[in-house]
Simulated scan of single mutants.
Amino acid sequence: MKFDNPEDILQLTPLWEGERYPNGRPKVSEGLLRRMRKITLEEAWGPLWNRGYTNQFEGEFKIIHPAKTMVGRAVTAVMVPKRPDLHDTLLSYGHEQEGRKGFFNQWVIDSLEEDDVVVVDMYDKIYQGTYVGGNLSTAISTRTQRGGAVIWGGIRDNQQVVEIENINVYYRGSDPTAIADCTMISMNGPTRIGRAVCLPGDVVLGTPAGVIFIPPHLAELTVVRAEKSQVRDVFGFIRLKEGVYTTAQIDASWNTALWQDFIHWFESASEAAEYRHLEWSEELEEARKLEGSGPSNDVRL
């Protein structure tokens, strides 16, 4: 076996057609990550759930900065309880064959890039399961700039880690002991975090409610659906305050007339300015089909 094996990563992520890191890990664009930071957990959850991705969320965490959103690209690892022969074989292999330094957790953190998030199955081990402390969290901060860690296990040095403002850490518990009696069996492979599954290159969205792992090939669709929901809500709030529509009309499927009103508003309203990269022809066409009407030329898309 190899740690961080490009052939394995390519095999695991065949639906991603965009840029990749040299090791094959999908590299969702920085612009898309920036847009992802503005969406809510529920907005991200909906498009995934509706496409059969029903095991992407886990909420049973403690959070270093509970009010902050974390977004980044997943770098994954799986740890298991120590078995001496397995432990010695894999540690020696990493040191001698792959030139890695230190303990298993350091190998992962030494590989991080900007906007990465460490995602580790520490099998819910807290005592001697502290994957990071003050030093390694500082290294994560330096390497990722805006990333962080999701650890199904423990951390230590909480009073130091909480002072690191530019990253976030999701974890199960804390303990003063150092990491021990565990072995890494996978780096950048499939990783289970509670009841969720994460693959290398997934977009990690951490919110006050928990963490959701978004497959890279669905990241753009997820953001676009979320942004469309947001701007439609803005329009709906405005029209409800004006008394133009009822809540039943806003909450139901929109007819062609309502869509025309929305699109005219969307093209000129200051409240919609940050969303003007969005396109609405699909939604308008669907409304026309539902009404059984022909095409109209009075709306610019």
Rank of each mutant, 00 (worst) to 15 (best):
Lys2Leu: 15
Val132Pro: 03
Ala139Ile: 15
Glu98Asn: 04
Ala180His: 10
Glu283Trp: 11
Tyr127Val: 15
Pro295Thr: 11
Gly31Cys: 00
Val78Phe: 04
Ser174Thr: 11
Thr89Met: 14
Ser137Ile: 09
Val197Arg: 08
Gly154Asn: 00
Gly18Phe: 04
Trp265Asn: 02
Ile167Phe: 05
Arg192Val: 13
Ala273Trp: 10
Gln145Asn: 11
Lys68Leu: 07
Glu274Trp: 06
Asp8Tyr: 08
Phe3Pro: 02
Gly24Pro: 04
Ile126Asp: 06
Val119Ser: 00
Thr207Ser: 07
Gly210Lys: 04
Gly133Ser: 05
Leu290Pro: 05
Arg146Gln: 12
Glu114Met: 08
Arg195Tyr: 09
Tyr245Asp: 01
Val132Ile: 14
Lys125His: 10
Ala74Lys: 02
Gly99Val: 06
Phe61Gln: 06
Ile238Arg: 14
Val161Cys: 02
Trp16Gly: 00
Pro200Asn: 02
Ala77Trp: 02
Pro215Gly: 05
Asn188Pro: 02
Gln249Lys: 12
Met70Glu: 05
Trp254Met: 03
Pro200Ile: 04
Gln56Met: 13
Glu283Asn: 12
Phe262Leu: 03
Ala219Ile: 03
Ser92Glu: 12
Asn23Phe: 09
Lys2Tyr: 12
Ala149Ser: 07
Leu15Gln: 12
Gly129Phe: 00
Ile185Trp: 01
Lys82Cys: 13
Val234Thr: 08
Asn55Pro: 04
Leu136Gly: 00
Arg20Met: 07
Met184Ala: 08
Glu227Val: 07
Arg35Ser: 04
Ile151Met: 04
Phe237Leu: 15
Leu10Val: 09
Gly134Leu: 10
Thr177Ile: 08
Met122Arg: 08
Val150His: 02
Ile64Ala: 06
Trp259Met: 06
Leu290Met: 15
Asp110Leu: 03
Leu41Lys: 07
Ala196Tyr: 00
Asn105Leu: 03
Glu163Trp: 07
Gly189Leu: 05
Gln128Pro: 01
Gln230Pro: 04
Pro22Ile: 09
Pro84Gln: 09
Val150Arg: 05
Thr183Cys: 10
Lys38Arg: 15
Ile63Phe: 01
Gly148Lys: 04
Gln106Glu: 14
